[in-house]
């Protein structure tokens, strides 16, 4: 998965209309809530075989951090 594809998928997970940039701070996104965190956990399992725990979620500051965790 490319970074551009990741950003597109993430937009879909967040059910967000506006585009996403790597430097965006997750907590500033209105859609960053428990619903999207669960969807993100499913996305990471499906595409990157990685389980996300609450401590991982807490450590993510920006969209870039998500891509690093995904290994892309």
């Amino acid at each position: 998965m490319t970074r551009a594809e990741f950003l597109n998928e993430l937009k879909d997970i967040l059910q967000r209309d506006d585009s996403l940039e790597p430097e965006m701070v997750l907590k500033d996104l209105e859609e960053w809530d428990s619903l999207s965190i669960m969807a993100l956990a499913g996305f990471f399992d499906q595409h990157f075989s990685k389980i996300l725990h609450f401590t991982d979620i807490e450590s993510f500051i920006t969209v870039e951090d998500l891509m690093i965790a995904a290994g892309i």
Binding site: M38, I51, I57
Partner: peptide, 25 residues
Amino acid sequence: DRQGDELKLIDGYLDGLEVFNFSIR
């Protein structure tokens, strides 16, 4: 709780993310 939701100790607790994780695992 960790997400900032308030609940009483006399009520049920559910750790949504970890329940999701164990289910898919």
